[in-house]
Amino acid sequence: MAWEVGLLALLSTLIYPGIIFLVVIALFYQWVDRRFYAKLQNRYGPIYTGPRGILQPVADLIKLLAKEDIEPSAVDKQIFRAVPVLILTMPLTALFMIPITGTWALASFEGDLIFIIFLMTLIAILAFLGGWSSTNIFSTLGGMRAALQALGYEVPMAVSFMGPAILAGSLSVSKIVQWQASHGLWAILLNPLGFGIVIVAFLAELERIPFDIPEAETEIVAGWQTEFSGRKLALIRLALDLELVLASGLVTALFLGGPTGPIPIIPGIAWFMIKTLVLVLIFSNLRALFARFRIDQMVSGSWKYLVPLSILQIVMLELLLGWLSF
């Protein structure tokens, strides 16, 4: 019956694998990231709240939500208030288009990959707006850096996304996952270079070391987030955690075969969790290894190396496909 279908759709959007599930794994991955990063640095990381500190991200979120929300008088109020909410909706919306439990995503249409790229660009633009509306000098600098950085990583990332899309002959993330499942072949095998470029570009998108330039603590305090506090900061932090899920989920879907695996008994969600966890650990590991780049080094490095390499990957893929006559 129609209302049952409607209810199911509503529940799956709100609870599983929708908003609540995504927020829970976002907080869980934040804990994994913090723990692993701390271990690499010979520290403990969060250990007090919950078993092995697993509830620390929840505690942090609740604490921030309950804290005083300060709005400096000089800020551009409308944008300043809108940015935290909008920045949270971007990765959530994008995550609806990524297959999590099976080969179909909650929302799927031809060209949703382009839409995801668009949403991720919006995140960078929102970061810029957030910094600009704060009118703080550190925020403004951070916002400008976020926008500049986006100019560096967007192009190689988008070009590298095209590798799996060419393989599947579709710009839909779900179709790309289905193609990989039906051929029993992960796109990473034909796109190893593209995979690497996407990981690097996502480090920049997620504003992580070595690309935490827009929020470089020792230079510009907290960058574009400097003036945000209380609820607004809580939403922004949650959005960044969700972005980590989005990044690992998208890489999983495009390059690692999505929520499918060689052993059919294990359900799709388990495959999704395993693959995304591995990616989160890779991101954390890279974060511990490097010093921060300067913004000019990041942008010029990206255009000098990442863009040509991503194009080379597409050329190689086309030649390979012609040779294999897929």
């Binding site: 690499l40 640095q41 010979n42 520290r43 070391i209 070595p210 935490d212 470089a216 603590e217 020792t218 511990a288 290894l289 490097f290 010093a291 921060r292």
Partner: peptide, 16 residues
């Protein structure tokens, strides 16, 4: 010095 350029791992190691 490691901390100032965003490389906290060096910071943690040296201080240990």
């Amino acid at each position: 010095a490691g901390h100032e350029v965003g490389w906290d791992t060096l910071f943690m190691y040296a201080w240990r």
